[in-house]
Deep mutational scan, measured.
Amino acid sequence: EPLWIRPDAPSRCTWQLGRPASESPHHHTAPAKSPKILPDILKKIGDTPMVRINKIGKKFGLKCELLAKCEFFNAGGSVKDRISLRMIEDAERDGTLKPGDTIIEPTSGNTGIGLALAAAVRGYRCIIVMPEKMSSEKVDVLRALGAEIVRTPTNARFDSPESHVGVAWRLKNEIPNSHILDQYRNASNPLAHYDTTADEILQQCDGKLDMLVASVGTGGTITGIARKLKEKCPGCRIIGVDPEGSILAEPEELNQTEQTTYEVEGIGYDFIPTVLDRTVVDKWFKSNDEEAFTFARMLIAQEGLLCGGSAGSTVAVAVKAAQELQEGQRCVVILPDSVRNYMTKFLSDRWMLQKGFLKEEDLTEKKPWWWHLRVQELGLSAPLTVLPTITCGHTIEILREKGFDQAPVVDEAGVILGMVTLGNMLSSLLAGKVQPSDQVGKVIYKQFKQIRLTDTLGRLSHILEMDHFALVVHEQIQYHSTGKSSQRQMVFGVVTAIDLLNFVAAQERDQK
């Protein structure tokens, strides 16, 4: 057995438009009618409502009807409940999964919650491996369901041993009777949507819809739904939504950006999952974080739909894509998950301010006199920076000697690579993860907040409520011999709460 199987392995699926269902090699399930009293909570997966979006479509000038398939009504709160249950049931049916076995899954959280929910009911041990950027709410729900959680670096490539995929496979090879159901490759993922989600949409719309818009992560949702719609409703256009920084969209030119990270969760990847059939997507749109969270908040405030950030991405694209539809036509959007997962993220004004998705003037509360002053007023001194090749031991000596707790790590040209902190280095040394002679590049981390000289002290204040420091950066445009230009970030300084307090105190003292 291989040590790991690539999540982007070539698909062996034989589905073709027009091929009889009787030739399918898979076990198919028909939607079942729910009894009045459910035998367990797993029976509350599927049969989610279709809700008309009344205000947002009109606000953006849509002539067509805009409908939302509300997947956050599933038992675990997301569309991923469907595939989690289906993968477990299919693994039980073919004898792969037996009582007492362990389920391991690399996930952005929602599939993990679905699997942990099913594992709690069915009696399996469950280990979820997820990147650090995923919300604390997801972690809390997983723990409450009895799952064990392993976190991995957000910026690790999918084929790196440190990625959530790599760590999951390492655990599988170490733990007896453990299984990775593997949402990236498992046919049960798109089949769950082909058999149930798509049929529900067709039934709820009486077979009449002209466009379907869905955000894409593993691709199982859009693949399964689109294949069924292509068979039953061939005139329906399928629109895929991919965040900026991901590479799922086609044509490839759409993916060209210097951005590699994004805040919206559960969609987009740096590889093409095996289950994603991009041939059934008629057109791709890219979405960005700001519009995703703005539209998610709009869905909550104006439509009462308590959905997550990827739902915002989907609707932001839908109001663009559906401009081509006329009166009497219908566009369906998939709202994948609930706001429950993001209470401390985009639902929080403070978080939105820190990330730059909300401006101070958007909030009406009274601010102190210094709130709208610029960061450049602080008069920061030149920063202490270190090269990635310097040793951890030497870096600790320098920081202690100069009285700093942290320093930016830059390359020879001064471009920011990340940050090192005294606390992080000492804990890594004590844990045996690094040696004093190791290069400081081994303990770089990139989960820090950046701020510009033109940003306000109010925004800085919000950042420092949650973080010990902020890195002050400025952009530099560099022209190359080819005539092309590129933008790079340079370090201007490091600012802490002490710097802000000293500035405010000094100004008030001078005024007296």
Rank of each mutant, 00 (worst) to 15 (best):
V420N: 01
L254R: 09
T274W: 01
E377V: 15
P383L: 13
P408I: 04
I451T: 07
K484C: 14
A296D: 05
I396R: 05
R509L: 13
M419W: 10
Q329A: 11
K359G: 06
G483T: 13
Q329W: 03
L501G: 01
F295R: 05
G432A: 13
A318E: 04
D270Y: 05
D289A: 01
E324F: 12
K359V: 09
R488W: 13
A470E: 04
K345D: 01
S381I: 10
Q302I: 01
Q447V: 08
A431S: 05
L254F: 05
E324M: 10
A497F: 01
D455A: 13
P368F: 08
V386R: 07
W369F: 07
D455V: 10
R374S: 08
D438R: 15
R374I: 14
S338E: 11
C331Q: 01
I477H: 13
V472A: 15
S486K: 14
R400F: 08
T482H: 01
V440N: 14
C392P: 08
D405Y: 08
Q302F: 09
T391K: 04
D349N: 12
R459S: 06
K283H: 01
G312L: 05
G268E: 05
V241R: 01
D270E: 11
S348A: 13
H480C: 10
S437E: 13
L426P: 01
K366W: 08
T421P: 13
K367A: 12
Q487G: 11
K449P: 04
F271C: 01
T389C: 01
E360F: 13
L373A: 15
F503A: 09
S427Y: 11
G423W: 14
I267W: 01
K367I: 11
E324S: 08
K449R: 11
D467I: 01
K283Y: 08
G441I: 10
K484V: 12
T260R: 01
L335N: 05
M419I: 10
S313I: 08
K446A: 01
A505W: 03
M425L: 12
R297F: 01
L453G: 07
I396D: 10
S485P: 11
K446R: 13
L305E: 03
K446C: 12
V420L: 13
D270H: 07
L358G: 07
I300A: 01
D289G: 01
A321K: 01
V333I: 13
N255R: 06
S437M: 14
D289M: 05
V339S: 05
S348C: 04
F503C: 05
K366R: 01
Q259M: 14
E412F: 09
D349G: 06
T364A: 03
G268H: 01
C392R: 04
L335W: 01
G328Y: 06
L347C: 14
A413N: 14
F285H: 15
S486M: 14
Y479G: 15
P436D: 09
S437A: 14
I498T: 15
L399S: 03
M343Y: 08
G356V: 01
S427C: 09
T421Q: 14
T314W: 03
K446N: 13
I444R: 12
M352E: 01
Q478C: 13
V491T: 04
H394F: 11
E252S: 10
E252G: 09
L501W: 07
K442W: 10
L363A: 01
R330W: 01
G458D: 12
Y262H: 01
V491P: 09
E250L: 11
T421S: 09
G493N: 15
D349K: 08
F503Q: 01
I390W: 12
L384E: 11
N341P: 01
I300W: 03
S348F: 05
R278F: 04
V386D: 03
E263F: 08
I451W: 01
H394Y: 12
S437I: 10
T391L: 08
G268R: 01
E401L: 04
T482E: 05
S246I: 01
M419V: 12
D282F: 12
T279Q: 11
W351S: 13
M352G: 01
I398S: 12
V386G: 05
F503K: 01
Q450R: 01
E265R: 04
I390H: 14
T395E: 01
D277V: 01
D289K: 04
A318F: 03
K345T: 06
L457C: 15
S381L: 12
K402Y: 06
P368R: 15
E327C: 14
K366E: 10
V281A: 08
V386M: 09
Y269L: 01
T260G: 15
